[in-house]
């Protein structure tokens, strides 16, 4: 555990100074993680402020001090998702990397630049679940918490999203083949 357990316990008891110390130790991780989800500095700062507020309000419920970081970052990711949802935006990602990860699990002979287009044709819930699962490596349980949907629903989203992506990418590949 990277945080001093006594500081975490002080924070759990409502000590604002201790809580601030803990967040400052995580400041870089908070920022870059938020940035990776929302893509813009200002939005990342907004997400951090909301996270700081909500985490302070609910830290009393944290039962295991050793899970402070995991708990904090879960709140951060949820805030980032909420922020993007309000603006009808999708979590940004890098096509190449997402494609590599998808490709490992799918047998598809298409190039990554088609991915963005195919992904954009999906329903936003499908897009989000794919990005969180393949690009951000989040477990299904966490995606379920972030998106506030049952685990079964997330599994369905992922299954349907992959199926649609596959057919979309194959269609795109075939079209591409015909043209060239």
């Amino acid at each position: 555990m990277k945080h001093d357990v006594h500081t975490v316990k002080r924070a759990i008891n409502g000590d604002a100074k201790a809580f601030e110390e803990l967040l400052i130790l995580e400041e870089k991780m908070l920022y870059y993680k938020a940035l990776s989800y929302v893509g813009k500095k200002e939005d990342a700062l907004d997400a951090i402020q909301e996270t700081s507020c909500k985490a302070f309000l609910s830290i009393g419920q944290l039962q295991n001090p050793e899970y402070f970081s995991t708990w904090l970052f879960r709140i951060l990711i949820r805030e980032c998702y909420q922020l993007l949802k309000k603006r009808n935006q999708i979590i940004p990602y890098e096509g190449d990397e997402l494609f590599e990860r998808l490709e490992k699990k799918q047998d598809s002979g298409v190039e990554s630049f088609h991915l963005s287009e195919a992904l954009s044709k999906l329903d936003s819930s499908y897009q989000t679940s794919i990005i969180l699962f393949y690009y951000h490596d989040l477990p299904i349980q966490e995606i379920s918490e972030i998106m506030e949907k049952p685990v079964g629903t997330i599994k369905t989203y992922l299954r349907r999203a992959k199926k649609k992506l596959k057919s979309e990418l194959e269609r795109s590949f075939q079209l591409n083949e015909k043209i060239t």
Partner: peptide
């Protein structure tokens, strides 16, 4: 994930300000 843009400068004061404001 890899980095997005704006990775170069970490805005320490602004991040701290956001934490404190929260």
């Amino acid at each position: 994930k890899k980095s997005h843009d704006q990775l170069d400068d970490f805005p320490k004061e602004e991040v701290r300000s956001a934490i404190q404001a929260g």
